[in-house]
Design a binder for these strands. Structure first.
Lengths: 336, 336
DNA sequence: TTGTAGGCGTTATCAC
DNA sequence: GTGATAACGCCTACAA
């Protein structure tokens, strides 16, 4: 037996309109009405049916966040602050998690249909998908963590770190420590992130006039520990005198560290390791990981600021902001 | 300009009813109709409004999973398999993430209102909340990972490991290695999990006739790395000759390990560490963590089986199943 | 401040 | 196999 707003109205002696107003915290209700209606509401533990609510409602005043990969620790660490900032600005915050392999724009399009948010933040995204389908979205959006500049949509801004420069800094750090035989663990090169970071690596090698042979020194992998482990094993098999490795994500670096250990080598004495992202975990490893730390607080803060600005001032152009990274020296690297 | 099923009907020359049937993959539609309707649908990239859909729909054939804590790695590692199993059985799987501090039953009640699932799985739950509010839920539910036996609701089953026995095994392992000065890092004792596990610890101490003074040897903490770190510091300050520590979760153990290192001590030479849960991470640490591994594959499998059984055979009673754990020896423990 | 009534976009139940 | 139409539960003018 389902109970509706009508039942509440009948039992409280008021009309449905008044009940609706109370339940939506509208000011134009008498205290008397509010009290006696809430009494009945609480008695039945009644809640509005959100389908009916959103079906009828013109425009919600909400901002949606689509998170690709629930276990992504970089994203997870930014969500709390984002949620906070959004709510402090008077918007409702809706968070949707999707799988790594799901299509974020299908989700976004459905979302616009159903919940009519004022703007969307994408944590994790696939450029291919955006090129194909983003045009059907007409509300302000922000790509968080990777640049959307090349996509060139007027309603798609982005806040990211300079992937190429971050990777360059990582490799340069190793070169400065005297390493010459450096392996790179990265993503598959059809995605934009891995390719950009690899570019940065190559710049560093060139600057130091150190030869780099991708076929030997680059090993592609997915950004998870188990794959990082396997990839590192391949690298160890292939490179005789390897003394250092740069992994394009901290979790891959963790997998690599264990592979190094299992090959009877020590970190950093035999092999130095540098990661990327600077997730919390890296600081708690018994051998602290040297890593390129993305400034997640600042990325989160600016993402929300920019999105809300776009929502409230519709005429402005897309912004593509680059947030500086920092190299955090840990205990996983050593000068030769 | 929003486009609805009516627009599709008009442009395709069919009635809304037929369009609806096509969009829901109903069999009673001619191929001709299906083709020409889908053409228009694709042309506009049209999607049903799910608010209207679920408002009207009597009962969805879905199973919902409410996950408390998006970053909980134990839960995350079970979700993929659960989703699979659910869909293989012909149900739709809805996953909802809520914060550690949110009320899972508020969410569940709203869910029953809106989406009308056939059953709900709770990953992470608070017994207090269940005692107060579970009675307003009348569909089959399963508590995953902690026992619901004492709650005694006929529509609430559970699948869990024996928390008391797991903790006992952990401490007993340390005692067998010769440790006598053992610290315990656990949760706050108002929750059922921490109290139960502490019980198990005490049983082990008693069995070995080793004194245990909770005020000194037990340090409560939240189940995150940073708190594990702090809690371990407190323990180190308080216990002079501590040689081993059991942490009631792997992430707490990780924090503890780093605290031990920062105090100039080595693992396992100076202090042995045992964790709980057996998340993937523990196997990749350079010092593999000895841990009590919950059999997540089996827990996930049985949770779904039981829930679906309850859905399809309404008359049966609640089941409270206990899945055996395993102690996984790592490199973080050493015999004295 | 409160009540009334139309309609949001879909599905389900009828007829045909 | 297809079309018309009444709900679903709520919000929001507008009227009182």
């Amino acid at each position: 037996m389902k109970i509706t707003i009508k039942d509440i109205a009948r039992e409280s002696g008021y009309a449905v309109g008044t009940v609706s107003r109370v339940l939506n915290n509208r000011p134009d209700v008498s205290e008397t009405a509010r009290k006696s209606i809430m009494e009945v509401v609480n008695k039945y533990n009644f809640r509005l049916n959100s389908n009916a609510k959103h079906l009828k409602q013109q425009a919600g005043s909400s901002i949606a966040i689509i998170v690709k990969g629930a276990t992504n620790m970089l994203f997870a660490s930014m969500l709390g602050q984002m949620q906070n900032d959004i709510e402090n600005k008077g918007y409702e915050c809706l968070i949707y998690y999707i799988n790594e392999t799901d299509n974020e724009l299908e989700e976004a399009i459905q979302l616009c249909n159903d919940r009519k948010p004022m703007g969307i933040l994408f944590l994790g995204s696939n450029h291919q998908v955006f090129m194909q389908q983003f045009s059907s979205i007409d509300i302000p959006c922000v790509l968080v963590t990777n640049s959307g500049e090349s996509l060139n949509y007027s309603n798609l801004s982005s806040v990211s770190t300079d992937d190429s420069d971050g990777a360059r800094a990582a490799v340069e750090y190793l070169l400065e420590l005297g390493h010459r035989n450096i392996g790179i663990l990265g993503g598959y090169l059809d995605g934009p992130v891995a390719a950009t970071r690899l570019d940065g690596c190559i710049k560093a090698f060139n600057k130091y006039n150190v030869p780099f042979v991708p076929e030997i020194q680059y090993e592609p992998s997915m950004f998870v520990m188990s794959r990082g482990y396997k990839a590192m094993e391949n690298l160890l098999d292939r490179m005789d005198n390897i003394t250092a490795v740069f992994a394009m994500s901290d979790v891959m670096a963790m997998g690599a560290m264990r592979a190094i250990k299992d090959h009877g080598l020590r970190i950093p004495d035999d092999i130095s390791v540098v990661g990327y992202d600077g997730i919390e975990l890296t600081e708690y490893l018994v051998t602290k990981l040297t890593t390129i730390r993305q400034n997640r607080e600042e990325i989160a803060r600016r993402s929300i600021e920019i999105l809300i600005d776009k929502i409230e001032n519709t005429n402005s152009m897309a912004i593509h902001e680059v947030i500086p990274f920092r190299l955090i020296p840990g205990e996983s690297t050593k000068s030769l």
